[in-house]
Structures are given as C-alpha cells and as structure tokens.
C-alpha cells in the first residue's frame, strides 16, 4: 500500500516498502510506503504497539529498517554515515516518548544541547531557550534540574529541545500524553507555529483531541501496516 502526498510539492520524507522486524519474530512495520511533503503536518495514530514509535525512530535514523528505502530530502538515510548523518540529524528535531533528558542538567542546558552541536552563538542560544520556555510555560523552570520536574514539564522540555535548533523536520512522539487541556493547546500552538514556519511535522499520537478536527493528513497504523488515511487536500 502506497500513500502519496500532494503532487507538485517537494517531498521531505519518502518511505518505499519499509519493514522493521525485531528478533525473534516481532513485526513492527510491514511494507510501509509513504510520502510526506515538505512543510506538511502529518499525524500517525494507532493503538499501542501499532508501530508509531518505530516509524519515528526509523525517520530519525535511530534505527535502521530491516528492508525498504527511507529518504529524507532525497537522501537515503540508511546509507548516510559520519558527518553527513550528523548534519542531517541537526535538521531533524525529535521529541522522544521517553524524553531522553539529562536529568542532572538544568532545563535550559537540556534545551540548549541541540543548538550547541550546531555551534550556535551563546547569546543566540540563551535568547532562544528563554523564548521557548516562555512559550511552553516553563520560564520559571529555567534553572531547575530536569530530574526534579513533573512528567508534563519534562515532556515540554523535550519538545523545546526538539524545536530549539529550528529544524526542517520535527518528529514528535505522544506530545500530549501527560498534559492537561490548556498545556496541550499550548504545545499544539507551538507545533503549528513551527509548521507554518516551514517545518515538516510528524506527530505520533493516540490522543484524538489533537487530530479530531484537523485538516492535515492522518494515517492510522494497525499492526505495523497502514490501515486508513484521512484528511489532506486531494
């Protein structure tokens, strides 16, 4: 099954017959073909174990597919190595489901890390960190050690780190899992803002409140296979 994005727009993500299996015989994704346009917001939904997180891990080259081809901006990421892979990763912001925060560092340090690897100037980093924390309602947590934050706060710090470096592609895994309605809206506003700024945003979620009324494409995964695609301009 191949699901195409809008014609005539540059493709950001291209997956052709991508499968991912974990030993001994767990099939996380099976023959998934998909194109996501540059600047598109795309939702991946499905129950736990449907393959949402695996798909995001493959897109950020955290894992390699068992078979098939994945291209980001026309580059096959499976074949990228060393500084080429590092350069690509700098353009991809990922908010992981398990946060991957450095719990002995402050909120500001955690957010800054993605900008530091691209050698941004310290004053630019400081300003960007303050702006993002402000937008996510975390300005009072600037110097708090992330290990002392609540789950919801940690989730927002992860998101801030993902978008801090102004990536061209943002992958978000369950962004609202631990958030109340108001904070969920804040988070979605921020992601929409990034999307309007030109970033391709892929959100994996099972929270229907964030995609229920969306005009963006929503793909449902079931047992590693695309089950249904809704939304988008045909």
């Amino acid at each position: 099954m191949k699901i195409n994005s809008n014609n005539g727009i540059e493709t950001m993500i291209e997956l052709i017959k991508v499968s991912k299996e974990y030993p001994p015989d767990v099939v996380a994704l099976k023959d998934l073909s998909l194109s996501i346009a540059s600047g598109e917001m795309f939702f991946v939904i499905g129950m736990s174990g449907a393959g949402k997180t695996t798909l995001l891990k493959l897109l950020c080259s955290m894992e390699i597919p068992s078979s098939g081809l994945i291209e980001i901006s026309g580059k096959p990421i499976n074949q990228l190595k060393g500084s080429h892979l590092a350069k690509l990763r700098q353009k991809i912001g990922v908010a992981y489901q398990d946060f991957k925060l450095l719990n002995d560092r402050t909120t500001a340090e955690n957010v800054a890390i993605s900008m530091e690897v691209s050698y941004k100037k310290p004053q630019i980093i400081r300003k960007r960190v303050r702006d993002l924390l402000d937008q996510l309602g975390l300005s009072d947590k600037h110097n708090t050690i992330t290990g002392e934050l609540s789950r919801g706060e940690q989730q927002r710090v992860t998101l801030a780190r993902a978008i801090a470096n102004s990536p061209t592609m943002i992958l978000v895994d369950e962004p609202t899992g631990n958030l109340d309605a108001i904070t969920t809206e804040r988070v979605m506003n921020l992601l929409n803002k990034c999307n309007k700024g030109g970033a391709t945003v892929v959100i994996a979620t099972h929270d229907d409140s964030i995609y229920r009324h969306t005009s963006h494409r929503v793909m449902e995964l079931r047992k590693g296979r695309p089950h249904m695609m809704t939304g988008g301009i045909e």
């Binding site: 950020c60 955290m62 060393g82 500084s83 590092a86 350069k87 690509l88 990763r89 700098q90 353009k91 991809i92 990922v94 991957k100 450095l102 890390i113 993605s114 690897v117 691209s118 780190r161 470096n165």
Partner: peptide, 16 residues
C-alpha cells in the same frame, strides 16, 4: 553514556 547517546541523536559529529 546517556548524554553521548543523546548527542549522537541531536546531530553531534564524531569530532564533537
């Protein structure tokens, strides 16, 4: 270990 893993994921180069 955790930090090095994260650094790789956010695009730190080998030299970094």
């Amino acid at each position: 270990q955790a930090e090095l893993e994260l650094l790789k994921l956010v695009g730190a180069t080998n030299n970094y």
